[in-house]
Amino acid sequence: MKIRVNRDVLADAVAWAARVLPSRPVVPVLSGLLLEAGDKLSLSAFDYDVSARATVDADVAEEGGVLIPGRLLAEISRSLPAEDVEIVTEGPEAVVTCGSAEFGLITMPVEDFPALPTMPPAIGAVGGGVFASAVSQVAPASSRDDTLPMLTGIRVDVDGESVTMAATDRYRIAAREFTWRPAGPGVAVSAMVPARVLVEVAKSLRGGEVSVAMGDGVAGFESVGRSTTVRLLDEQFIDYRTRLSSDWSIRADVRVTPFVDAIKRVALVAERNTAIRLSFTQGQVRIQAGGGDIGRGSEVVECELRGDDIQIAFQSQFLLDGLTGIESELARINLESPSRPALIQDVPGDGQPAFRYLVMSLRQS
């Protein structure tokens, strides 16, 4: 194999593919990136659960393939000077040359690299911006506890032109609904996709559309020359729709930016795992924290309250995760009592809110 490729293009593609490389591979070849040169250059990584493939333009003098230690190639490619990079296979080495810099990397047997999963059939497509926004809104509510795999995923429910993403860690539920372009009429699919994979896909989007594929226990995502597949989790999930559709006797509308800024300031004096206290009265909400060994903080923000005055407390980061998911100027906080959860949602001009976030309240001392 002999190729020449732009340094920035190579470094970007290598870094993107290398993100799925396992830190402790069960077999050595899984630590490698497979480079295949044909009409274009493709770079692939696979850990038996998640695969990633990036395709970029390159000048291909000799076609072929080579398996190179992925993390090392990522470190080298981003440190090279701003010149074109040449990669040539010479016996057991892949020689990487850029300007006067040259590296001879020991390769691994290409034939030992496992075949990547076949991309399942496409079920629809959505704009990259909408996809990334939806993932960023719901992913914070997913759990990091691998002992409960169901809670580490994002539920994706497809019903024709409507898609809902939802996640929960038992202490909060986040859901976002959006419209998309289904691949055909009557598409109806439900699946649990690992949240970490959706987050990585969303981070790497560079515009355009995301094509979503599902089938045979695998989900696939393609956008602008990059594709990812991942094994789906068990489909078991809570009935989140019922939990998000309760009636609420108290409603407070507050401007998101000043409210978030005030919570962050007051939280500076909140000790670990202590509550942020919100006191809603007519025309305002008072944010309070602290009172222990560190100190205390308090700030008032304007709000429009419908219903009785109420004081309620939340874990500060859980509260902020919900508020920062709001895309409208105003956030609506639906309340019932200090001991019940609160529902945070955007305030749309018309129709139902696209984003909803249910968060448990904390007992106040």
Rank of each mutant, 00 (worst) to 15 (best):
L320F: 05
D261N: 13
Q236C: 15
G325Y: 08
L72N: 03
T118E: 13
D49T: 02
E304V: 10
A342D: 10
S339Q: 09
T89N: 02
T324K: 03
E209H: 12
R206Q: 14
V347Q: 00
D8L: 13
V126E: 00
P258D: 08
E161I: 06
T118D: 13
N273W: 07
A54W: 05
Y357T: 12
R226L: 01
L278C: 07
I312S: 06
E75N: 12
G215S: 08
A262L: 08
V156D: 13
A82L: 11
N334T: 00
G99W: 09
Q284I: 11
G292K: 11
V254Q: 03
L320T: 02
T55M: 10
F103A: 08
P149E: 11
Q288M: 14
T168G: 14
A313I: 06
T164E: 15
A125Q: 14
P25T: 09
F259S: 04
R363A: 08
T281W: 05
T274D: 04
R251K: 12
R206I: 10
V230P: 02
A188Q: 11
R363K: 10
S279G: 13
I326L: 02
M360D: 09
A17D: 03
E304I: 07
R7Y: 12
P348E: 00
M165T: 14
S77L: 03
I87M: 05
Q364P: 04
V359P: 00
R332K: 09
L268S: 01
G70D: 07
D169S: 11
T179C: 12
F131K: 14
G65S: 15
V218D: 04
A202K: 10
G91P: 14
G127A: 11
L43R: 01
G64N: 08
V201K: 01
N273Y: 11
P121A: 13
G153M: 07
D112H: 02
G208F: 03
L323E: 04
L148P: 00
V163W: 04
R296M: 14
V66W: 01
R296Q: 15
V50Y: 00
V29K: 01
V110N: 02
F318K: 10
D112Q: 06
N273T: 11
E329D: 15
T179V: 11
S23V: 08
A174G: 15
L233W: 08
G99N: 09
E304G: 04
A132N: 02
Q137H: 05
A267R: 08
L198A: 04
V359R: 02
T147G: 03
V163T: 08
R226K: 03
